[in-house]
Design a protein around this nucleic acid. Sequence first.
DNA 1: CCACTATGTTGAAGTTCATCTAATCAGCGA
DNA 2: TCGCTGATTAGATGAACTTCAACATAGTGG
Lengths: 124, 124
Amino acid sequence: MSNQEIAESAGQRSGGCCAPISVSALDEAQAAEGAAVFKALSDPIRLRLMSIIASAGGEICVCDFTGQFDVSGPTISHHLRVLRQAGLVDCERRGTWVYYWPKPERMQWVSALLAVPEAAALAR
Amino acid sequence: MSNQEIAESAGQRSGGCCAPISVSALDEAQAAEGAAVFKALSDPIRLRLMSIIASAGGEICVCDFTGQFDVSGPTISHHLRVLRQAGLVDCERRGTWVYYWPKPERMQWVSALLAVPEAAALAR
DNA sequence: CCACTATGTTGAAGTTCATCTAATCAGCGA
DNA sequence: TCGCTGATTAGATGAACTTCAACATAGTGG
């Protein structure tokens, strides 16, 4: 895969955009978008929710969360919405239950933002 | 490499610890540590500061920041402290000026946390 | 149609955060 | 030693965030 292809696959309009910050600095718009995603991950409960969803290997039911956390149902619901609005997960209601799944492109984009290319790492 | 070895090589006491969240979920302590780092990156100004420091290719003087941002000097200083406390940058005073540099291990750790192994990506 | 379960939404209370001004600290040169 | 410049700390204030209780909505089954 060429660098160009990598850039394109990462760069589908929303947020996907930029080289790792070790390579080039972000402009204001890029920083705003990135910060919004990091904010979604900046709460311990949300990060755990995200990790449970991401590691589920597919979909997972909301009913599997309640009980694993010390907070009330509405609070879980609120945190899930934040993750959804950040584009990190998506969900669908099927019958009584609601299922969530991760959006790997988005996760990968954020991960790539922080990645340290070997050259940059060696420069120190 | 055994799982144990992986855990050890990633786990130098503070924070380094865990497999990507696409592979296994975080426990409370891991989530707390990860969330703290994400919180440090969750502000647009801090994320831009971080990207400027990371892409500087070495050290950079605080005096290079002031003027690039619409906030007062003390505010910049406050944000730099948050990044420092998160372990993402470090600094040293030399004469009149203070220089900052990134800590690539920490950046790499956070990046790895969100990385999506191919297998996990293909499973969807 | 009604009761029941599973989630999501709203509004309010308490807490944390970003930002500013004013004051302080560190180094330099006269 | 005194002032000057660069940077950080302290205190205050308004905005944003987390959380819960109460209510609303969607779907199931009697």
